[in-house]
């Protein structure tokens, strides 16, 4: 049964639009799946390889701007930004990796955080190239309906999921986890830690960049404050994975569902809605204290607690 789980999931995903969901529901679904992709990407680097990045907006934003600038400067469909972003973001990841991957632990995290901010400020000020804070508007939307956007992001997500799973089960996966657990031990076991960290970063960045390029096409408007956002992209990415479950296959998906729904819910609340960043911060603290392995990682624990409660309920 467990073996068929992914296929059933896939079938459900493919059939969902046929149920005639409202445009708003489709929008939420698309966001959830897009965040799953970003979460999976981050999880590969942060969860499995242990290199915690606080700057994934750097890759999301460059992916988004690759599509945006391509359309704006040449008039070619922004969809070509998806394949092009792979090349551009891979090159970006190699440069950022060269600078940041020589640092370990919290120093790496801080360096990536700085990278994201550097790129945001750059995008704001290179007005001739990026339109600065004006942003880029995609005037011709490909589809009015959401259905095709949905199928495209499902395709990307399935591809990302399979890719991450294959990588983790291969030699690369063993090396990533070995580096996470002890970099010195890994190095002395013949693992070229610099090389494999760079590989993890590049794959992670490229997947994030594709999600960014998709975002440009889907939303039809980008500006640096949105796609290079420290909080709304970089931090939320980490939260998606932490809430769902670090270094688990389904963690980023579960995390994306919860974070997107929660964001919608909190923003719709009168008055407190404006404090959603604070509420997310509190949520993160609670997760770290009570579910350090996330919902998927601590699933047995959650089941135990819920099961216990139910039994108490029936006896009283």
């Amino acid at each position: 049964m467990r073996k068929y789980q992914p296929y059933i999931m896939l079938l459900l995903l493919l059939l969902l639009p046929l149920f005639g969901l409202s445009t708003y529901m489709m929008h939420i679904l698309i966001l959830v799946i897009m965040w799953s992709v970003i979460g999976m990407a981050w999880n590969l680097l942060g969860g499995y390889c242990g290199q915690v990045s606080f700057g994934h907006a750097a890759f999301f934003g460059v992916g988004a701007y690759t599509a945006g600038i391509l359309y704006f400067k040449t008039g070619i469909s922004a969809w070509w930004g998806l394949p092009l972003s792979v090349v551009i973001v891979a090159a970006e990841a190699l440069i950022i990796g060269f600078i940041c991957l020589r640092l370990r632990g919290p120093f790496f995290a801080l360096a990536t955080l700085a990278m994201g901010e550097v790129l945001r400020v750059t995008a704001e000020n290179l007005r001739g190239f990026t339109q600065g804070a004006l942003g880029i508007l995609i005037k011709e939307r490909t589809w009015v309906e959401k259905t095709w956007y949905y199928y495209i992001i499902v395709l990307i997500a399935v591809g990302a999921f399979v890719l991450v799973k294959k990588i983790i089960e291969s030699k690369l996966g063993y090396y990533f986890v070995a580096i996470r657990e002890d970099q010195d031990a890994a190095e002395s076991l013949g693992i070229n830690t610099t090389l494999y960290k760079t590989i993890a970063l590049t794959i992670s960045a490229v997947l994030t960049g594709i999600a960014g390029a998709f975002y440009t096409n889907y939303m039809g408007y980008i500006d640096p404050e949105i796609v290079f956002a420290l909080h709304d992209i970089s931090i939320i990415t980490i939260m998606v994975v932490m809430v769902g479950g670090v270094a688990t296959y389904w963690g980023p998906v579960v995390g994306a569902v919860i974070m997107v729904l929660l964001a919608e819910l909190i923003r719709s609340l009168p008055r407190i809605g404006t404090a959603h960043q604070t509420l997310f911060g509190i949520l993160l603290i609670l997760i770290i204290i009570f579910l350090p392995n996330g919902i998927v990682g601590d699933y047995p624990k959650i089941k135990r607690i819920l099961g216990f409660r139910r039994r108490v309920g029936t006896t009283s």
Partner: peptide, 24 residues
């Protein structure tokens, strides 16, 4: 040379303070 290169050439080591890959 780097440790991983030296290991590839055929020198392996253990650590006094053991360094198992804990969560594996």
């Amino acid at each position: 040379l780097k440790p991983h290169q030296i290991c590839r050439l055929g020198i392996a080591r253990t650590f006094q303070v053991v360094k198992p890959l804990q969560r594996m």
